[in-house]
Design a protein around this nucleic acid. Structure first.
Length: 373
RNA sequence: GUGGGUGUAGCUCAGGUGGUAGAGCCCCAGGUUGUGGCCCUGGUUGUCGUGGGUUCAAGUCCCAUCACUCACC
């Protein structure tokens, strides 16, 4: 089962709230989805994820296919039981790895030929295969295989990539229809680089095929922020209004607020988890680098206005000490805070939209960030 | 006591034939957008063990001395 219903709309922006029902539970949107590439949101247990308020997490087809492999996860009837997470899971198709591991891959009509970054073995990730793997993982939301291109890119390169992505999308849907019993959703992905007419063409082709939800890919690949928002602003309204919209791989807290205003329902990003492991913490007042010497004796929590486990129990000085000592607990406590912050930001936006005060929320969001520090 | 070796940044060490000092790590500050904890970009730090001598010029050559260290008595 998969269902999406819009529950409220902002009168001044395109922001909206909604509810996604999946076989593994309900997701309220806008939602931030923590990234759990290898079947774990790095440093956190599923219990801690729940405490952070996470509703749905990501897994990665490419990584899980290479290790441990479907034959292992099959023994658990999917990723949920394997990793002890019984909430919804969305799996990335591996399309982004075609892009990010480009030196190890070759794209053709058939699919993306890879050399494993682990042992160098050769693999072909076709649209059919990525769907088959995601069915095996029992993902609640399956993503189509797409071709993400680098920035900057020639118009012709972007055009070829979006057309290939559209052909792959058709094959993904066909494969999905032949395998699904209806409880797994399939999302299409819009590409087109930074070219407005190509984005429009991609949106049109993708919507024609018809999906349970639509993603905007190929953003935050090095382009200026203004351009990223411009493309999202232009692309999002071209997609069916009644389906969830997902901007992939984005972004900073500011990005989330702006993209919600443009009508985005779903986000994922490695920023909160990766940066937690690099000592950067997100707070209402802006980012804070816990390694800074100024926090050496600071008895305050990272974010005094935060209600997460870390902020309720630990000081900046202690977290700095843990991080400087490379203690494992540092990664866990920092990640708990950052995930909580992103999840909570989405939650606050949901409340603001539902109560018709999103514009005020947005203003206050920026005021808080400039008032501190 | 005799003979050898080593003393250069907080640490580990580079610095042919003399031209007033560098690297890695650490530390400090940035970056990080469909993830390997990595990585990238900047930055601070020196009475070159000490005292003499030779020289226009000494981390570098000479003498003395101190510390550490190894071997032998």
């Amino acid at each position: 089962m998969f269902d999406f219903s819009i529950t409220s709309r902002c009168q001044e922006t395109r922001a909206r709230t909604g509810v996604i029902d999946t076989a593994h539970g309900t997701v309220r949107t806008p939602v931030f989805m923590p990234v759990g590439t290898l079947g774990t949101v790095k440093a956190l247990s599923p219990e801690e994820l729940v405490q952070c308020g996470a509703q749905i997490i990501l897994g990665n087809t490419y990584h899980l296919y290479l290790r441990p492999g479907c034959e292992v996860i099959e023994h658990f009837s999917g990723l949920h039981r394997f990793m002890n997470w019984d909430g919804p899971i969305l799996t990335d198709s591996g399309g982004f790895q075609v892009f990010s591991l480009a030196q190890l891959s070759k794209v053709s009509e058939e699919g993306a030929a890879f050399q494993s970054h682990i042992d160098g073995s050769s693999h072909l990730l076709s649209p059919e295969k990525t769907v088959a793997i995601q069915v095996c993982l029992d993902a609640d939301i399956i993503m189509c295989l797409d071709q993400c291109i680098a920035y900057p890119a020639e118009r012709e390169t972007a055009r070829e990539a979006l057309e290939l992505t559209a052909r792959w999308a058709g094959r993904c849907k066909k494969e999905w229809q032949s395998r699904t019993d209806g409880h797994q959703a399939l999302f299409g992905i819009v590409q087109g680089g930074m070219f407005r007419e190509l984005r429009a063409r991609s949106a049109e082709l993708t919507a024609e095929i018809g999906f349970d939800g639509y993603a905007v890919g190929g953003l935050s690949v090095g382009e200026p922020k203004s351009q990223m928002l411009e493309i999202a602003d232009q692309t999002l309204p071209l997609l069916p209004v009644s389906q969830p919209k997902y901007v992939m791989g984005v972004g900073t807290p500011e990005d989330l607020v702006e993209l919600v205003a443009l009508g985005t329902d779903m986000f994922d990003c490695v920023l909160p988890t990766r940066n937690a492991r690099n000592g950067q913490m997100f707070t209402a007042g802006g980012t804070l680098n816990i390694t800074n010497a100024r926090y050496r004796t600071d008895t305050e929590p990272p974010d005094p206005s935060c209600t997460c486990y870390t902020c309720r129990h630990y000081s900046r000085a202690y977290l700095r000490h843990l991080y400087m000592s490379r203690e494992l607990l540092a990664y866990r406590l920092n990640t708990i805070h950052n995930i909580h912050y992103f999840v909570r930001l989405a939650e606050d936006m949901r409340g603001a939209i539902a109560e018709q005060r999103f514009t005020d929320f947005r203003k206050a969001f920026y005021r808080r960030r400039t008032s501190r520090k």
